[in-house]
Amino acid sequence: MVARLDIDELSGAGGAVRLLHADARLLVVDKPAGLLSVPGRGADKQDCLATRVQALYPDALVVHRLDMATSGLWLMARGLSMQRQLARAFEQRDVCKRYQAVVAGRPGGDDGWQAIDLPIGADWPNRPRQQVDPVHGRPAVTRWKLLGPGPLPGTSRLELEPVTGRTHQLRVHLQAIGHPIVGDALYAPEGIAAAAPRLLLHATELALPHPADGAPAHWTSPAPF
């Protein structure tokens, strides 16, 4: 495997993208907040993480996504066969992703990992918002652990592990238990949304059996807040 790289060749208007790892099968990059993962609709939404990476690695293909407002570790496959293999790894939950978030208030409960198990579905009249939907929603589970106080008064820092991968899952689940993520313009009340210049959610860890030989592969990115 190739050693960690730190380059800024993927910079653009949305901020610098660090390429952390590159080998013949996969790429790991560190996405800045405010940059789309894939192209959106319209000429003004074509700059994105995928196209920046593909400028250097034309065979790079998308395996999963991060919200535009979320920063942190993102995995891409080298070629169609590897895209299918890594997609199966996600489906079989062989890929572990962890995040850090700063939330309003202090979630209660015992120390250690706890779970939010609430189904999520589209909030059709208010798209792209999602919502907890016990009737039509799909199963969604998030594990969380209190790390300590957050950087702002009245906030807490949490470690999060999505067991499932629903759209906006972490944001919806934390809002549903009364602790929305600071800086979340979609789900947090106005005062909490305006308390930070960005969504305070960052993908900090990515781990999986490397498709080359099954050996454990692990990357980290410290939260920038």
Rank of each mutant, 00 (worst) to 15 (best):
R25H: 12
T155N: 02
M76P: 00
T220K: 12
H202C: 08
L73P: 02
G121P: 07
Q175W: 09
K31N: 07
L80N: 10
G121F: 11
P39V: 07
L10P: 03
P139M: 11
S11K: 13
E9G: 13
I116A: 02
Q130F: 03
T167N: 10
F90D: 04
G109C: 10
R78G: 02
P39D: 04
G108K: 14
Q169E: 07
I192D: 05
P149E: 15
G214F: 12
F90P: 02
A60F: 01
S156L: 05
V29H: 02
A223E: 03
R4T: 10
V2K: 14
D30G: 03
C48N: 11
A13E: 14
L200C: 14
L146A: 08
R98D: 00
T142W: 00
H21P: 01
P151Y: 04
H218L: 14
V182L: 11
D6S: 11
V53C: 12
A104E: 12
P119Y: 07
A185E: 09
R138K: 15
P180T: 13
L199A: 09
A22N: 08
K45Q: 14
A223D: 05
G108Y: 10
R84F: 06
L27Y: 02
A188Q: 04
A195C: 12
H168L: 13
P107Q: 14
A223M: 13
Q83S: 09
R4L: 15
G79P: 04
A77D: 00
E190H: 13
I192Y: 09
R84H: 08
H21S: 06
Q54I: 00
L19H: 10
Q114C: 05
R106S: 09
L201V: 08
V2A: 15
G214N: 13
R93A: 06
Q131I: 10
L186W: 14
H136E: 11
G183L: 04
V63H: 00
P128N: 01
A196R: 07
L20C: 08
V141Y: 03
R93I: 08
Q114V: 11
